[in-house]
Design a protein around this nucleic acid. Structure first.
Lengths: 351, 351
DNA sequence: GGTCGTTTTGTATTCGATTACATCGATGCT
DNA sequence: AGCATCGATGTAATCGAATACAAAACGACC
């Protein structure tokens, strides 16, 4: 054991975090043993374990993640690529993911793309650069270059908030089209014949596309049409939705039912109605989607669809972990939604 | 240039991502030049740049973050440690941070602790293990061991949603106490004398503690007291808040004004009132805090306080980046809040 | 007491990028 | 021509932990 002359500082240089080497020296073992103590303690003698544990505690040793990731090619980080946190729904899905990942010792690296497919590709590259072990995306539709990148990256990924009908990419979600189909059907059953639709821009947003398609399909089946002037697109915000709704209210024969592809739109629409003195549900029925507190607490309460957003997050995290650890896992999961009728819908007034 | 016999695969082994060495070989330069091309292209000859750029594109080269972090001791990741995403406010702060970080080429690593200081310490350790370059926390009060860890870690960090009165730790936020003080004052001015308070548990939550203190201070100044039975604590959820409110409604002389330390509580309280047939604001005034859409869209709309949550997130990200890049930056920032009076408050009925 | 198998530990290489230092060539100046 | 200077590039050491392989220690058994 030749004393290292370059390491004779009595004060352990109060900067610089301690490394495995420091721990090894203090515990009187080699760095290999320290490493084993961390990763597979069962192959380390009990006495040695105690010594190492003490040194670790005393030096406040935390293994260097980058070094570890470099050598073992596993970073124990999972990347989540979501559209936005402004709309609380994605935050809840992400939160559920985070809880599962945390319990398994993984960390969550997060990025938002604000509904921009090019930005999504860029941030995904960035996360790949950080060496995340797996990816979770929102939605089924993405830049082909993104899928090429994932192919090349060779790590697990899963798409959420929808289920890939072609079963090309692992996905966990629910049937967006069926959900709005059911909602529209509900309104048709109540007797509505003239509909409006408030939707997010469908460009690069398959959730919005599918939700709109569900409405159209249900109407078509009932022999009804959705006229262009009755469809409004806009960003997900209360004020935008109120503006969209005002346009619908100004139509000559006014729709008696307005389907909104999410609760924010629906509440924005309710605000516009209140301001215009249009009564809900007497004069007009309004429906939302995602069953948020925002909608449920309105007066009248918003008829909506409970989507399994928390379950999706949990299942996505479970899937990528299972695959990372070499376990088999169902790559496609369709979770159920549920229509929640409340006071914002009723039959049209028979005037 | 001895041909490496072990590297004679014509097919570039469609697994394994390409490294700087691969790029160097293809471009006919050394890895040092590749590295320079990435980090300081101005010191690389134009022709060489072109060659390297081509190789990078062809091989889809993405620098290995872990290797980079190991060598340069900078991971370009910032850790955010937040209580929870269930309450949308933290999500919005985080979103604002993420936007700033992304623009500067940093990534956000996220963890939630669900109001558990021990969990907070644990996940912070985990993030430190990943080598994040800086930390952002919510709140001023933390486990002393957390501060010890940060001291030892030696990287920038900032506390948010409050400003450390002792100026011991860099912090960006607003004056929670002054905010509820102002709100209570508003109610006192309206003529209220008997108050109720709905608060989150104050244990380890300085925001809740300060907000409660603001209410008490304003009442004390007006010569009023807040009786124990008029204060209810509970988790941040609509149903919990409704339950808390029911208790207040059952008091013999009922409070005429209820201050809630956040909008979720306030809306839960409104629900309880609706169910009990108690009119707002005629029978009782209710106030919230954080000025969420949830409160603003109620009937009547909730009087609340607009807190600078987005600005806090943005400023926090800007501060840590500035400090990471060696620039000077104001370590303490107090941002303004604003009282937003709406229909949920009025003078007490004079009966 | 010696041999073999097992457990425990150490030595030395490796992961991929960064960077101090060395080298080489070209240019400028006297 | 000779020497200094500067820009561009290569060589090789390095960051911290994981791990293949070798070596040592320990028992067990005959």
């Amino acid at each position: 054991m030749p004393a290292d002359p370059s390491a004779d500082d009595p004060v352990p240089a109060r900067e610089r975090r301690s490394s495995a080497k420091d721990v090894a020296r203090l515990a009187g073992v080699s760095t290999a043993t320290v490493s084993r103590f961390i990763n597979s303690p069962e192959q380390v003698d009990a006495d040695t374990q105690r010594a190492v544990r003490e040194a670790v505690t005393k030096l406040r040793y935390v293994p260097h993640g980058a070094a570890r990731a470099l050598r073992s090619d596993r970073s124990r980080m999972v990347g989540a690529v979501v559209p936005s946190f402004e709309y609380a729904l994605y935050a809840r899905t992400t939160s559920a993911m985070q809880a599962v990942l945390d319990a398994e010792g993984y960390s969550l690296v997060l990025a938002e793309h604000h509904y921009d497919l090019a930005a999504e590709l860029r941030i995904t590259k960035q996360l790949a650069g950080h060496g995340v072990d797996a990816f979770v995306f929102v939605g089924l539709h993405h830049d082909p270059a993104l899928f090429a990148l994932l192919e090349n990256y060779g790590r697990p990924y899963v798409l959420t908030w929808g289920v890939d009908p072609m079963h090309q990419h692992p996905s966990i979600g629910f049937d967006n089209r069926a959900a709005t189909f059911a909602m529209t059907q509900h309104l048709v059953d109540l007797g509505h014949r003239r509909f409006g639709l408030l939707s997010a821009p469908t460009e690069g947003n398959d959730r919005a596309t599918e939700r709109g398609a569900g409405v159209r399909a249900a109407l078509a089946q009932a022999g009804l049409a959705l006229e262009d002037e009755c469809v409004q697109y806009g960003p997900i915000s209360l004020s935008a939705a109120a503006g969209m709704m005002r346009k619908l209210l100004s139509l000559k024969p006014r729709p008696t039912a307005v389907v909104c592809t999410n609760d924010v739109f629906a509440v924005g629409a309710m605000i516009a109605c209140r301001e215009a003195g249009v009564r809900i549900p007497e004069d007009i029925s309004i429906t939302g989607m995602d069953n948020t507190d925002l909608g449920a607490t309105q007066t009248p309460a918003l008829t909506s669809i409970r989507t399994p957003i928390v379950e999706v997050g949990r299942a996505a995290a479970e899937q990528v972990i299972a695959r990372l650890e070499g376990r088999e896992h169902e790559a496609f999961q369709t979770l159920p939604f549920e229509l929640v009728p409340r006071g914002s819908t009723a039959g049209p007034s028979t005037k």
